[in-house]
């Protein structure tokens, strides 16, 4: 029987949740035995090559590219797991939601105290750069998410326990100490 297929993605966040995945220490050897990785920043596979059993999502949705790839993940993955504060709530990047996007960009590129005079007057709008959304959205506001793992980042134990439970088809029960928002 072929191994279950796992894919991961990183959107607007700090990559800390992927670091936490790698923080499972020597259990990473078990993981390699248990699953096969498809599209993921860990192996640098850029495109889905087969249907995926479990998709793991880190980060909030702040631009059109994030949204597009998240929808692609939903299409290819049987189960979608959002991990970490940014994917679940928008997290620290969503602090910009309290300020209109135009003001954010003007502060960063036109009026901010660290803007050098020769760079003034340019808000980047190259077609190759993803277009920022009005707000940073939690993943579940864009597509249906099946499971949520909180934490900033979720600990390696949280991710490991959840992954093993999902692979075995067992209910996902997190111990008290593993439910954290920070």
């Amino acid at each position: 029987m072929s191994k279950p297929v796992v894919a991961t993605a990183h959107f607007t966040g700090c990559f800390g949740c992927h670091m936490s995945i790698l923080d499972i220490d020597e259990r990473i050897l078990d993981l390699v035995e248990l699953v096969e990785f498809n599209k993921s920043p860990i192996n640098d596979i850029k495109n889905f090559t087969k249907p995926v059993d479990i998709g793991i999502i880190e980060g909030g949705i702040s631009n059109d590219e994030n949204a597009e790839i998240l929808m692609e993940f939903r299409k290819h993955c049987k189960i979608l797991v959002a991990i970490g504060a940014c994917a679940l709530t928008g997290g620290v990047p969503s602090m910009r939601n309290l300020v209109p996007l135009k003001e954010c960009l003007e502060e960063a590129y036109l009026n901010g105290p660290t803007v050098k005079s020769e760079n003034t007057g340019i808000i980047p709008n190259d077609p190759d750069i993803p277009v920022l959304l009005d707000k940073v959205y939690p993943c579940h506001e864009v597509v249906k998410i099946d499971y949520f793992l909180p934490g900033c980042p979720p600990t390696a134990d949280t991710i490991w326990n959840a992954l093993v439970a999902l692979l075995k088809g067992e209910p996902l029960n997190l111990d008290y100490e593993l439910i954290k928002y920070d």
């Binding site: 949520f148 909180p150 008290y176 439910i179």
Partner: peptide, 28 residues
């Protein structure tokens, strides 16, 4: 929560933990 100085001693957060609220899902 990730950048708040009272995280870990916040009663709102602690109630969410105790009641096993994994994440709010209503629109912010």
């Amino acid at each position: 929560c990730p950048s708040c100085e009272v995280a870990g001693k916040c009663e709102l957060q602690a109630l969410a933990y105790r009641l096993a609220l994994l994440t709010p899902q209503m629109p912010y």
